[in-house]
């Protein structure tokens, strides 16, 4: 969909945090993406490669953690995991559910080098 805009958001937040820590470079950016968003991993990596040069995250690895949908049944309070579009309670068959996880679009953490950090990039 709009992975370019998403990656712009990722880079802005990563650089802001890195600058606050006086980092010299960003080695890894960890993001959590819910399966219910319309984000495609390949397009995300492509956009990251295209937009990161010239930023502190140039050459950094984008690590994507996918979050599977989980919901809570409104009828019987059971919580359960499900696919993208089949939220049906396995306990009572109810399909009025409150989504607990699955729509994440979040930056978890970054791995950075600080001034004087001469250690080469660690393997992921």
């Amino acid at each position: 969909m709009h992975e370019m805009g998403i990656v712009k958001g990722i880079l802005d937040a990563a650089e802001e945090t890195a600058r606050r820590s006086s980092a010299t470079r960003i080695n890894e950016v960890h993001v959590r993406i819910g399966d219910l968003t319309e984000i495609v991993d390949e397009a995300l990596h492509f956009a990251f490669e295209a937009l990161s040069p010239g930023t502190l995250a140039e050459g950094a690895t984008l690590v994507v953690e996918r979050v599977a949908p989980r919901s809570k049944c409104a009828a019987c309070d059971a919580t359960f995991s499900h696919g993208r579009f089949d939220a049906v309670c396995p306990e009572c068959g109810g399909f009025v559910c409150e989504l607990l996880e699955g729509r994440e679009l979040a930056i978890d953490c970054i791995d950075i080098d600080l001034p004087g950090d001469e250690t080469p990039e660690e393997p992921a």
Partner: peptide, 11 residues
């Protein structure tokens, strides 16, 4: 060094 960001991407 790992630094916590914990922010929505579309913040």
């Amino acid at each position: 060094m790992k630094v916590d960001v914990s922010k929505p991407i579309l913040d």
